[in-house]
Design a protein around this nucleic acid. Structure first.
Lengths: 304, 304
DNA sequence: CCCATTCCTGAATACTACTTCCAGAGTCAC
DNA sequence: GTGACTCTGGAAGTAGTATTCAGGAATGGG
């Protein structure tokens, strides 16, 4: 299922028994343990028996420790390569880090979040959501707090290509809209944790009204996901929780972009046109450059 | 020793005996053999005995096949990542692209936008903006359309760590707020093109009121930038204008995150605390997790 | 040309690491 | 409290890996 072993481990955590979870946590905290240690040693480090470690590997879908280990080695190396591109030795932010370090580390985590979201994305589900939206009449979006921005972002994008979309920061309005959904409509709930009660509530109402429901969340086992016909999962790692909020939002936006581009593509929309125009306006402006600010009034671009 | 196992093997070739050379050649031709096959099977494929393969691994400086194999797995995965990246570097989205292709390409461009923004960032300017905000009384944020979401995002973040920040989608309210700025305040205008009249206007008003002004834009020569004491530039490449809208917003958010983390770091804020708590809530839920569906009466999920 | 030395090689052996099985402990529902 | 179930680690079994060793080829000296 999930391409990256480590994301898979994180995702599987809730389904695991306590001993297996201990193994998962140790591995998530330091994946290098797997590469360096034999199954026996790893079991000892985790305070459990090697049988449990072996079972854990199989729970994740691997034939055993050997296969799992190779997979972890690959994932670790891939991540290390990424880190090197940012010139980083380690990736946790320290209070004494320089501005350059902080910037590189934040960027690294955000890039990682995007890449892992891609790896873990089920494109079949993505396309079914695209089908539902393209074939549907209207899209309702529910998201509050940070996820509210993602919802608004998608709303703006859909509206721009002529798809009826609604999104409100006001829970009451969202609920009213949810109650009015028809079976031809699509309702999308966005919540990183999947626990946000307002989002869950709204999505449930839309579901009861007969709409096709979609969840965008980092926790595919969460309440929001359970109300959804289709679940799109982001893979922002929470282990370095200090970054969590940022990475998760970037991952959500990336996901929303995938969805949007695919919709535009499916509809045969000429996404190029309008944006091309923006591009040219900008370019023209830049050539005359400095004085454009003076002629204010009306010459504004489609976006921003 | 050479960093990459495979180069090492290639380099060592002339020094190897004929049987070991045969092993080396097979591996160089298809490194995946090592990942997939046991030492016994690999020996058979190479038409030699497993002893020879084991010796070969030791000749290259590894303790044995096991260690060698892990190393090869790492190298192979790293190389695949590089190749993938390279393949995406020069490709635009095509109407006939598959979902996988679309996702990979969009993600690549977004990652690129982050990386280039990091590269082009003047951390000295960043830190002076941080100084202004940390030492100031209040932050006003102006941004509309897509950039409005970035503005709101930063507003939310600053508010969360107790910094007075204002952001409104209503231009009038923004202007009123701008007019009320004091010299101890900071006003930040966000506009990708730098041409948005509302943003320019508001930033100009805040400047006249005496506030320190900051511009976040992709065009450092634009009107918004000219009104700013400090300019933070995003580097979302517009050449592939089809992606521009998405990449620019990601770049803006990344920039805002750099700013935010640096501010939190400077203030010695315990960013860890609140987020840690969120993490634990999620975790608690997850432990009971398994049966959450039952409690929820109607919750069935089509996937998983 | 023959013998001695050295190096190379793979079969056999020894060993380690991994997998699988199983029974006991614990947990939950009735 | 009892039965059904799950979780867990010990132990047996097996696959995979390391090492030893002897035969054989190649090289060099007599």
């Amino acid at each position: 299922m999930t391409a990256n072993v480590l994301s898979a481990a994180r995702e599987a955590l809730p389904r695991l028994s306590s001993s297996e979870a201990r193994v998962a946590e140790a591995i998530i905290a330091d994946p290098h343990l797997v590469v360096d240690l034999t199954i026996t040693d790893l079991a000892q480090v985790c305070g459990t028996s090697l049988s449990t470690v072996a079972r854990f590997c199989q729970t994740l879908g691997y034939s055993g420790y050997r296969e799992f280990r190779m997979e972890v080695a690959s994932a670790v190396s891939r991540e290390a390569a990424e880190r090197e591109r940012f010139g980083l030795a380690n990736s946790d932010i320290d209070p004494l880090d320089s501005a350059e370090d902080v910037v590189a580390k934040v960027a690294f985590h955000e890039v990682l979040a995007i890449e892992q979201t891609v790896e873990g994305l089920d494109t079949a589900v993505l396309d079914r959501v695209v089908d539902a939206i393209v074939g549907g009449a209207h899209v309702d979006l529910y998201g509050f707090g940070a996820s509210g921005l993602t919802a608004q972002d998608l709303q703006q994008k859909l509206a721009r290509i002529g798809i009826s979309a609604f999104c409100s920061v006001d829970v009451h309005l969202a609920l009213v809209s949810a109650a009015l959904r028809k079976p031809t409509d699509v309702a999308i709930g966005i919540s990183h944790s999947g626990l946000t009660t307002e989002t869950t509530h709204a999505l449930g109402v839309a579901r009861d009204a007969g709409a096709t429901t979609v969840a965008i969340t980092n926790s595919p086992d969460s309440p929001v996901a359970e109300l959804a016909d289709f679940v799109l999962t982001t893979h922002a790692r929470e282990s370095s929780y200090r970054m969590g909020a940022m990475s998760s939002r970037i991952a959500q936006l990336a996901l929303v972009d995938f969805l949007f581009v695919r919709i535009a593509q499916r509809r045969g929309d000429d996404v190029t046109g309008p944006l091309q125009r923006t591009f040219e306006v900008t370019k023209t402006h830049r050539i005359n450059g400095r004085r454009a600010g003076d002629r204010r009034a009306n010459g504004d671009s489609p976006r921003e």
